[in-house]
Design a protein around this nucleic acid. Sequence first.
DNA 1: CAAATAGTGTCTGTAAGACAATATATG
DNA 2: CATATATTGTCTTACAGACACTATTTG
Lengths: 227, 227
Amino acid sequence: MMQSETASIQVLTTVDVVVLTLVDGVLSVVLVQRERAPFAGVWALPGGYIHAQEDADAHASAARVLRSKAGIEDAYLEQLATFSGPARDPRGWSVAISYCALIPQQKLPTPRQGLKMVPVAATGQLPFDHGQILQAALARVRSKSQYSSLPVHFFGESFTLPQLQQVYESILGEPLNKVSFRRKMDELGMLEPVPGQMQAGGAHRPAQLHRVRPEFRQQLALSARGL
Amino acid sequence: MMQSETASIQVLTTVDVVVLTLVDGVLSVVLVQRERAPFAGVWALPGGYIHAQEDADAHASAARVLRSKAGIEDAYLEQLATFSGPARDPRGWSVAISYCALIPQQKLPTPRQGLKMVPVAATGQLPFDHGQILQAALARVRSKSQYSSLPVHFFGESFTLPQLQQVYESILGEPLNKVSFRRKMDELGMLEPVPGQMQAGGAHRPAQLHRVRPEFRQQLALSARGL
DNA sequence: CAAATAGTGTCTGTAAGACAATATATG
DNA sequence: CATATATTGTCTTACAGACACTATTTG
């Protein structure tokens, strides 16, 4: 009954990161061009091996991969799920701890060779099981946007409530009631107006700029009943 | 910038399973006594290495561990989160893909040497980071019980609505409105009365037995607005 | 002032909870 | 029939969405 307690075949341990951002209001994912086999030259999610010598945990591995392969720092990063099996990577039985990162467009690195942002609906076929990982990330973001402040991580320092509502609507794929949305944001208590600042713009009343209160910077605000 | 793409230090890949059940209405966790170092003789969550030779994925590893180390079959099983780092296991840098299992008391194996059920509040200190994994499982179950049918997996074939409500209340730690609870269960549409059967019992009206509709057996029913 | 969008007040419908009446067992 | 719990009906309250009104900017 009790089998040997040694892992007799090496299991590859990797991290893959789904970096999401809004490019002109369109939910997009960061892809990098793979430099080596398997799938050399193919566009894929940024990923790589865990480096046991230097990584404090898989979260640190994901942050390192993000920095070294996509030039991204300071993204909001949360663990998604872990994918595994003998077939997902042609090199052998592998474990991929996947992470989801949200980052404002302004924090993206300058576009360069081997790095691009693609609307999530237009990635085409992705190597490994990266298509499945991307779908898991989208499901997570849509689900969490229904009851939490997750989408604020798509913005930088400050933003207006109409902008924020547009992002929620874009992610959820449905229009939201303006009054209810503002009531909810008020109840969550995570935003504060940036004193005196308004957004310049068109021939109309300018909107008040808001920012996330410091105590919510690295933490999500959750709503009991959604929105 | 681009570092070597080989995992130069072996990473241990394991699964750990938090098996939850209700023992006389008290939420309890299955612990097994470890047979070998590290922590030989200590009570811990059932866990073990991934066996790349035989496991189709980590989910299969978890099911195998459950069968071989705790004698449990056919539990509801879902992935929880993945814990990792150099310190959580004294053998070295390790990855533990954790799973949460729910099982009715009747399906538990006959108690035997090296296997016990402990109320979740009374486990005491657990080895590795199993305390943290247990807390993640409890948070998951409580969270999902607020808006899904997750707790039905604590029951076997059939159960009454008052029994089910008691379980929800026990998990959530607060009393629920009887009328609202029944309205919600009705809306979810996942239960059906077992024709003609009632539960025998005390000196009072017996409750109608219900069961999960076949199409919801391996899938949770989700509510839009909670409960 | 006309146009355009921001922000707010208020009404209405829906859904959740309180309360209570009815139903059906046992002794 | 007294008692105990199951089940259902109905009233009340709270909240979400619809609608419309006010506010503030540019040209």
